[in-house]
């Protein structure tokens, strides 16, 4: 196993196979909790923990041929129990150590159980790859998803409330107040973006920008290919 393959495996979750922007999985939390950057970071941490461990466990139970033959016919219930157990552990840890964040994220923490990304990775990757590869894949995917929701919540928060709240748990107080931009322009932040409407609008716009970029790239590649032919 060389370094380059591992790196590619890790990086594919960010751009090429980004779970949110490319395969459009896990849209529910991406729309609901992205009102603040802090929520996105918290969701990312929870998902990172669950996805890495679920990928590891799933690939461990499907790795040995004998065990695999046993698990494969009933794999969906097996995955559900594994993932649900991890989610309950995450839920308890967050309730104990990150109480305010636990309250804001609310029902979306237990709902990680039915997050399509986790199921998707278990089914599409972890069930037929080595444990270590699966962990790397899980880390890449979870960080790719976290990056995507941080981008969405960055724009939503800056447009909606004129602030960037990065982390306020415990004693930390990492908040950037950007109201001076609005004062300078003589307008107020657009309240709509912190409302549910803003989630749909922002997600749609970001996907459209990405699609426009992909279209332009494809056109360029086509032109280049035509040029070579000549």
């Amino acid at each position: 196993m060389d370094i380059k393959a591992v790196r590619d495996n890790f990086l594919k979750g960010f751009i090429k196979e980004n779970p949110l922007f490319v395969t459009v999985l896990g849209t529910c939390p991406a729309l609901a909790i992205t009102t603040k950057v802090e929520n996105a970071v918290g969701m990312g941490i929870a998902l990172f923990f669950v996805l890495i461990l679920s990928n590891l466990l799933v690939s461990l139970v499907t790795f040995k041929p004998k065990l695999r033959a046993l698990v494969m016919p009933v794999r969906i219930p097996v995955y559900i129990v594994l993932i649900a157990t991890l989610v309950v552990i995450t839920e308890m840890l967050m309730e104990a150590f990150l109480q305010p964040l636990y309250v804001t994220l609310g029902v979306f923490i237990p709902l990680i159980v039915v997050n399509c990304i986790i199921f998707g990775r278990a089914e599409a990757y972890a069930s037929d790859h080595k444990p270590l590869d699966s962990v790397v894949d899980g880390a890449g995917m979870a960080l790719g998803f976290t990056m995507a929701i941080i981008i969405i919540s960055f724009f939503r928060e800056i447009l909606g409330s004129g602030m960037i709240t990065v982390w306020t748990q415990g004693n930390a107080d990492l908040v950037f107040d950007l109201h001076f931009i609005y004062d300078f322009l003589g307008i107020t932040p657009i309240d709509m973006f912190t409302k549910p409407v803003g989630g749909f609008v922002m997600f749609g716009l970001i996907l459209a920008v990405l699609a426009a970029g992909a279209n332009a790239k494809a056109e360029k590649a086509k032109l280049a290919a035509a040029g070579v032919k000549k």
């Binding site: 459009v24 409302k195 609008v201 749609g204 996907l207 699609a211 426009a212």
Partner: peptide, 23 residues
């Protein structure tokens, strides 16, 4: 529909319009 908005992006914008009404 503009090319970049085809598929999911326009579906999201449409959902946003419905969400405005329901809000």
């Amino acid at each position: 529909v503009p090319k970049a908005f085809r598929g999911i992006p326009i579906a999201m914008i449409l959902a946003a319009l419905l969400a405005i009404i329901f809000s």
